[in-house]
Every structure is written in structure tokens, then in C-alpha cells.
């Protein structure tokens, strides 16, 4: 027997009251992190074009598009979109973002 999801029992103002300060702090962490990246000594490669940072910027833009399922779409944005197994595992760990991600501005410049 399948049951329907238990709806969130809180009113909207209660959700904001309860979680606002915690998420205000997370936005500040994010802002300070991006500032820290800018202030850090530049690498030989342009580290501002790191695929992880590009993904993060893409995710931040997505938060403001007014569409639902933001968490799912952030995870989708950071996922490897390929479908076939790879030849061999290059390492055990994961970076947290797909290394082929290109920001919208770079994609706009593509011709093929």
C-alpha cells in the first residue's frame, strides 16, 4: 500500500523564522569563499576558470530562476552526464563537480 507524502506541517513564516539565520550564515560563507578565491595568489593556469567554481556559479544562478526543485537541479548540474562506463577508475575519490561543465557564457561562444 502506498501512502502520500507527509506534508510539511509548518507555515511559511515559521520556516523562515526557524531557518533564516542558519542560511544567512551559509550565504556569507559562500560570499567570503568567492572573495578568498579572488584574493588568493594567481596560478599559472587561470584558477578562476576552475570547473568546480564554474559549477558553483552556475548553481548560484539557478537558485534565483524562480523554478522549483532547486536542490535536485543543483545536483543535476554537478553530475557527470555521460552514460557509458569508463575504461578504468583514475582515482578513488570524487571532486564534487563534473569536470566537463562549461558556464553559459562559454557555451554561448561555441560554434559547433
Amino acid at each position: 500500500m502506498s501512502t502520500s507524502p507527509p506534508p510539511l506541517p509548518l507555515y511559511r513564516h515559521a520556516v523562515v523564522d526557524r531557518y533564516f539565520l542558519e542560511h544567512r550564515a551559509k550565504v556569507l560563507d559562500l560570499a567570503a569563499f568567492l572573495d578568498r578565491v579572488d584574493r588568493a595568489k594567481p596560478d599559472a593556469a587561470d584558477s578562476n576558470r576552475d570547473f568546480r567554481l564554474d559549477s558553483l556559479r552556475g548553481a548560484i544562478a539557478l537558485l534565483l530562476d524562480g523554478e522549483p526543485e532547486r536542490a535536485k537541479r543543483v545536483l543535476d548540474l554537478m553530475s557527470d552526464p555521460s552514460t557509458e562506463p569508463i575504461a578504468a577508475a583514475p582515482m578513488k575519490g570524487a571532486t564534487g563537480a563534473w569536470d566537463g561543465f562549461k558556464p553559459a557564457s562559454a557555451r554561448d561562444g561555441e560554434t559547433g
Binding site: L75, M78, S79, S82, T83, P85, A94, A97, D99
Partner: peptide, 13 residues
Amino acid sequence: TPHLEDKRKGTRL
């Protein structure tokens, strides 16, 4: 299922 960027693909495989 795999971690982070590998999860969605791995879950489907």
C-alpha cells in the same frame, strides 16, 4: 551508489 558527480550516472548503471 557513487559519490558526488558520479552518483546519478552510477545509480542508473
